[in-house]
């Protein structure tokens, strides 16, 4: 019995794999069915996931096991219910309270986190002596790093016309951005092909058994 369901599961997987791949040829009923099943299943998955992994351990368990110590969690629970008020046409505005709390928290976190990691740390990381290195390749690279970072930031300067020396710097900046886009694209090609390899390893290995997984 278990064996049957194992094999059946692999066949199901292969069928849905082909249904999605068929989209590459053109839109068709197989893809449409797979698409709707995907949307439905994933919404269902997140529903169950939220209940089991977020609401039960963080809200219901603390409240039911030790109410006295955790009564304060009734506040987010109440705000959560206000969130659901979105579904009631005339009470939609009530959901603004929970949204305000969420946005306030993340704004505060984002303000500091991005300042620290994406601004200050990137700046200190660029504070190097570019002329020190084991060989000339490193020195050239470090000079490129410093020049690229500075001109790249100049490109993102909005309140000044890009002309004269400033315009030249911004132009050099966009060249660096282009190199980084090309390189990132090339790198990602590797990642994406890996995914296709993974799929084909499933089809050729698990399903057809031509290659050993």
């Amino acid at each position: 019995m278990t064996h049957f369901f194992n094999v059946f599961g692999i066949w199901l997987g292969a069928a849905f794999t082909f249904a999605i791949f068929s989209f590459l040829y053109k839109d068709n009923p197989f893809y449409k069915v797979a698409e709707q099943i995907f949307v439905g299943l994933s919404a269902g998955y997140w529903f169950i996931y939220t209940i089991f992994n977020i609401l039960i351990p963080n809200l219901f368990l603390p409240l039911s096991t030790d109410f006295a110590a955790n009564w304060i969690k009734l506040i987010p629970a109440f705000l959560g219910v206000l969130m659901l008020m979105r579904l009631v046409p005339n009470a939609e505005w009530m959901s603004r309270y929970p949204i305000a709390l969420l946005i306030g928290t993340t704004s505060g976190l984002a303000f500091l986190r991005y300042l620290k990691s994406d601004v200050i740390n990137q700046i200190t990381a660029t504070m190097i002596n570019p002329f020190v290195g084991n060989n000339w390749v490193t020195v050239v690279g470090q000079i490129l790093l410093v020049v690229g970072t500075i001109t790249g930031v100049i490109y993102f300067y909005f309140s000044k016309k890009h002309e004269g020396a400033f315009g030249v710097s911004a132009k050099i900046g966009i060249y660096f951005l282009m190199v980084s886009f090309g390189a990132a694209f090339g790198y990602t090609a590797m990642a994406r092909v890996s995914l296709l390899i993974g799929r084909l390893q499933f089809l050729l290995g698990d399903w057809l058994g031509i290659i050993s997984p």
Partner: peptide, 11 residues
């Protein structure tokens, strides 16, 4: 160069 470009975008 890529790190430079990415850093500029991050900043």
């Amino acid at each position: 160069p890529t790190t430079a470009g990415q850093r500029a975008i991050m900043i």
